[in-house]
């Protein structure tokens, strides 16, 4: 194959029938991994805001919490707020930094890959913290005034009854199973949302590596 011939053909390949959009507002970018991730992030961010508002309002709506469980409930909510605030701050930094396509290909790819990897890790840690906290908050709100009594019952059973150890073990195993379930679910969820993009970016980065 003669590349000079091909170059001549390439240079003559002019297609005047191509139309460019006349209105830039109508353009929608959606197919790059970064744009997809941004879209997911935006959606998730608003979901978190909605969840948080619901959790704040829940005790007022149900009106089932005792003064003590109200304190516990809002303390848990406040504890959940801290990693969420950290996540949000990182989200904005990450969101603004992505997509610097005027860099060299290697720098653009590296930046997109490492930023996304770093962000995914923060996101996973946050999910590990938030999921069980949400579970506890839901339990508190659901049990309402019975929360204290239920806890007393469990402790009472554990101490007073003959098979207390067995009951406690069952509770502990159930809790651990639930947490393992959470971890597996989070891993799957994060991978489904962001893993494929990370893999794609990493595969292209490898194509740039020095060849021997």
């Amino acid at each position: 194959m003669n590349f000079d011939d091909l170059k001549a053909a390439w240079n003559n390949d002019l297609d005047d029938s191509i139309n460019i959009p006349q209105n830039l507002e109508s353009l929608k970018g959606a197919q790059s991994p970064i744009e997809k991730v941004k879209k997911n992030l935006r959606l998730e961010f608003w979901l978190y805001v909605a969840f948080y508002v619901i959790f704040i309002a829940l005790p007022f709506v149900t009106n089932r919490l005792t003064p003590v469980s109200t304190v516990v409930y809002y303390t848990l909510l406040l504890t959940m707020f801290m990693p969420m605030a950290y996540y949000t701050a990182n989200f904005y930094k990450f969101y603004g930094r992505l997509n610097r396509l005027s860099f060299t290909t290697k720098d653009s790819l590296d930046e997109a890959y490492f930023e996304l990897k770093h962000f995914t890790e923060i996101y996973t840690v946050m999910q590990h913290f938030i999921a069980p906290t949400c579970f506890l908050l839901g339990l508190l709100a659901g049990l309402g005034q019975k929360a204290g009594k239920t806890l007393d019952k469990i402790v009472g059973v554990a101490y007073l009854q003959h098979d207390g150890i067995i009951i406690l073990s069952i509770l502990l195993i159930s809790f651990i199973t639930l947490m393992i379930g959470f971890i597996i679910y989070i891993k799957w969820y994060v991978n489904r949302l962001y893993g494929k993009y990370l893999n794609e970016l990493n595969a292209i980065r490898k194509e740039l590596k020095e060849t021997e």
Binding site: I18, I20, P21, L24, L27, K28, G29, A30, Q31, S32, N99, R100, L101, S102
Partner: peptide, 17 residues
């Protein structure tokens, strides 16, 4: 689709030109 995406990304990056 790619043609449109490229124009979209060029417009977004136009500040850097």
């Amino acid at each position: 689709d790619l043609f449109q995406e490229i124009i979209f990304q060029l417009w977004k990056s136009y500040e850097s030109f």
